[in-house]
Each structure stands twice: as structure tokens, then as C-alpha cells.
Computed example of a mutant assay.
Amino acid sequence: MRTEVQDRSMWLTLANMLVAAALSLWLLIRPELISGMPMILRMPAIGLGVWALGTAFMHPLGLEFRRHWLRRATRPPVSLAVLVVFALVVTVRAL
């Protein structure tokens, strides 16, 4: 029997999911952080949020894209950087 060894730390995955869950709950409680932006900034922020939160919940479930460029865009360190950028956008908007 063959087992698959993950190349990332379990703690990194857990921290990634916890940050994404906290951001999701924060945006459910205060949606004006995104909806209060002008439309020209709101659409890229929504796209960034979908990308950041989607990849944070996708990897622990074992889901992957088949296309190389999509798989590369949704794996760390790119997905972690996008999550940090989205968290900074939401935090700056809250302040």
C-alpha cells in the first residue's frame, strides 16, 4: 500500500484555514468592508477574496486543478501571499 506524503506542514494548512475562516466570518458580520468600496475597487477585491478564501479551503480537502497554471496559482506560496494581501485589504478597510 502506498501513502501520499504532503509537502507542507500540517500547522501551516491549519493556520491558513483558520485565517480564511476568520476573514469569512468577519465579512459575514461586516459586509460593508467590501460593499462600501467604489465599484472599480470592489470587483477586484471580490475576485481576490474568492481566490484567497477558495484556495485556503480547497487544499485541505485534497482538491486540485488539472491545468498546470491553475494548480500553480492555487498552491503555496502564491495562495498564502494572496490570502495575506486580502487580509490586509480587509484590515485596512476596517480601520
Rank of each mutant, 00 (worst) to 15 (best):
A22E: 03
L23W: 00
S24V: 02
S24K: 08
S24Q: 03
L25A: 07
W26P: 01
L27K: 02
L27N: 01
L27T: 05
I29H: 05
R30C: 09
R30Y: 14
R30V: 14
P31G: 01
P31I: 04
P31T: 04
L33C: 05
L33D: 09
L33Q: 06
I34P: 11
I34Q: 10
G36Y: 04
M37Y: 12
M39F: 14
M39P: 13
M39A: 15
I40D: 15
R42Q: 15
R42M: 14
R42A: 12
M43V: 15
P44A: 07
P44S: 08
A45W: 05
A45I: 04
G47M: 14
G47T: 13
L48Q: 12
G49C: 07
V50K: 07
V50M: 13
W51C: 08
A52I: 05
A52P: 07
G54C: 09
T55C: 07
T55A: 09
T55P: 06
M58Q: 07
M58G: 00
H59N: 12
P60I: 03
L61N: 00
L61W: 00
G62T: 03
E64C: 02
E64N: 03
E64Y: 08
R66A: 12
R66Y: 08
R67P: 05
R67D: 15
W69R: 13
R71H: 13
R71S: 12
R72Y: 13
A73L: 13
A73I: 13
T74W: 03
P76H: 05
P76V: 06
P76M: 08
P77W: 04
P77T: 02
P77I: 03
S79W: 00
